[in-house]
């Protein structure tokens, strides 16, 4: 296989595959945070901060995939 084609294919696949897990993960985090806020509205502020923290940790994996896309795309060009 042509190395440039392989790099382009890898670039596309890396971001696509990296987005699957964090997508599901952020859904779980936000869903449970909403549940917690509905059950105890007086804790909503604290839950929201924790939710953003959880989103930030989960999202990092998808963003590593995006970075890998840039690196591989640079290799192809």
């Amino acid at each position: 296989m042509d190395p440039q084609a392989a790099a382009l294919l890898g670039a596309g696949l890396s971001y696509g595959l990296a987005a699957i897990g964090p997508g599901i993960g952020i859904g779980i985090v936000v869903g449970n945070a909403v549940q917690a806020m509905v059950r105890q509205p007086e804790m909503a502020g604290q839950v929201r901060t924790t939710m953003f923290l959880g989103i930030a940790f989960t999202e990092a994996l998808a963003l590593f995939g995006l970075l890998l896309f840039f690196i591989l795309f640079g290799q192809a060009g």
């Binding site: 930030a56 999202e59 990092a60 963003l63 590593f64 995006l66 970075l67």
Partner: peptide, 13 residues
């Protein structure tokens, strides 16, 4: 690394 990449990737995206 994740601290830097999170900010960078969000903004460039």
């Amino acid at each position: 690394i994740s601290l830097a990449v999170r900010l960078f990737a969000n903004m460039i995206a």
